[in-house]
Simulated assay, not measured.
Amino acid sequence: MIAERGLAGLKTRDLARAIGCANGAVYNLVADVDELILRVGSRTLRRLDAALTGAEGAGPASPQETLVRIAIAYCDFAAENLELWRALFEHRMERGKMVPDWAINEQMELFGHIYRPLAALFPKRGPEQLGITARSLFSAVHGMVALGLEQKLVAVPLPALRNEIAGLVRAMLDGLVARQN
């Protein structure tokens, strides 16, 4: 349902009808709509992890080129799974509710794909500094993907977006390498 209609199109009444149960029975499976969305997000993150793992292990490459592959795989995943990908970032927990630790841990595990090549590229950096760099690199790529796929004023054709992302990642890494010397 989310894949077809987006997060706003998720209605528990429609979901209950689709799986053949009473509306209230959905809440025998999950505590509330927030948990339902987080569980869908968990499945999406597993699929994203598989795509990033494939890019990471696609053959011998320098840490820089591995990061380029990961960034392009992220872009491609978002383009191919647009509504599920958007739901990961659009969902807001009910006021006063915290995101459960299991959901946060799943999200943070994905940063390992960025962290590992960065650690190889910058062996003198500590874990905290590498984590900040990983999150900064992700933010730059994510911003390009989000705006590039928006299909509004700043929409960028996918092949051009891939090239721009590769250029951004290389430029950022070249700058970081030059700054460390």
Rank of each mutant, 00 (worst) to 15 (best):
N28P: 00
V30S: 02
D32F: 12
D32W: 12
D34S: 13
D34C: 14
L36D: 06
R39D: 00
V40R: 01
V40Y: 02
V40H: 01
V40T: 01
S42Q: 07
S42P: 00
S42K: 04
R43I: 07
R43N: 14
R46T: 10
L48Y: 07
L48F: 11
D49H: 15
D49M: 13
A50K: 13
A50F: 11
L52H: 07
G54T: 15
E56C: 14
E56L: 13
G57Q: 14
G57A: 15
G57I: 06
S62I: 10
S62R: 04
P63T: 12
P63G: 12
E65G: 04
L67M: 06
V68Q: 11
V68D: 08
I70T: 06
A73C: 11
A73P: 10
Y74N: 10
Y74L: 14
C75Q: 09
C75V: 12
F77E: 02
A78W: 01
A78N: 02
A78I: 01
A79Q: 06
L82E: 13
L82P: 00
E83T: 09
E83M: 11
L88Y: 01
F89A: 07
E90K: 14
H91R: 10
R92Q: 15
E94Y: 08
E94L: 11
R95S: 15
R95P: 13
R95T: 14
K97P: 00
K97M: 15
M98I: 03
M98A: 15
W102P: 00
I104S: 11
I104K: 08
I104Y: 04
I104P: 00
E106V: 00
E106M: 00
Q107R: 11
M108V: 06
M108G: 01
E109W: 00
L110W: 05
F111I: 00
G112F: 03
R116H: 10
R116W: 08
P117C: 07
L118D: 05
L118S: 03
A119V: 05
A120N: 07
L121P: 14
F122W: 10
F122K: 09
K124S: 12
R125G: 05
G126I: 02
E128N: 05
Q129F: 03
G131D: 08
T133M: 15
T133A: 14
R135P: 00
R135H: 04
S136I: 07
S136F: 09
F138S: 03
A140L: 15
V141D: 09
V141Y: 14
